[in-house]
Design a protein around this nucleic acid. Structure first.
Lengths: 105, 105
DNA sequence: TTAACATTTCTATAATATTGGAAATGTAGA
DNA sequence: TCTACATTTCCAATATTATAGAAATGTTAA
């Protein structure tokens, strides 16, 4: 991942409304949630929601598919994986292991 | 970590100049680098550098100590660890394991 | 004390992001 | 086709962020 890509992804998540949307989508799993569902759940007006979904989408962090009148959004786990890998590799090295997430192996 | 804290940390890293500063500090290790050294390395004028260091500092991602006339900045690995843990926990769950950084255990 | 230097604060300007109402677009069912 | 509904685009107002010169602050060494 290039630094520009990382910056775009970080910027997409660096906003409370968008981070909330993304968290909700992560929780929802790969089934996803319709735009309207997100708006209702989080109390965001349609235009504002659409604006934020565009940012997340542009960053590649969410995918969308159309089902009839609904647009279903879902988290793109693969892209999030890449972002975390980037942060772990470039922003935690130097003193290796220091920032590795705790895992029971 | 609260969502507000995560947003502040993400916002601190969601800017190319600041992400570059942080990467450089991570590489530099716990010894750290003087503000002037960062400015010279990255070609950033003092006032601009100071502005960005303040943002990183406010997010808790960097620490600083004064040595004579120099202010030495260093990465706060612990805070970065917390951020990665937050992202892994809240933004990669739902379909557990999907986003876990690849590690050989 | 005085001069040199490192860094921050002050300040103004420019650029970018956020918000949400209203209108436009597209789809489904009557 | 006509109507209802979901979502997006358009637009304008507002807020926040980034940039960097100049001045201020603090520190060291002569």
């Amino acid at each position: 991942m290039k630094i520009e890509t990382a910056v775009v992804a970080l910027a997409a998540l660096a906003q409370e409304t968008r981070l909330s949307i993304f968290r909700l989508l992560v929780q929802a799993g790969k089934e996803g949630v319709a735009a309207g569902g997100l708006g209702e759940e989080l109390g965001i007006p349609p235009a504002t929601l659409s604006f934020h979904l565009k940012a997340l989408s542009h960053a590649g962090l969410v995918k969308s598919r159309t089902e009839g009148r609904f647009v279903i959004y879902s988290a793109n786990y693969a892209e999030m994986d890449k972002l975390i890998a980037y942060l772990t590799e470039h922003c935690c090295a130097g003193d290796a292991g220091q920032c590795a997430p705790v895992r029971k192996c």
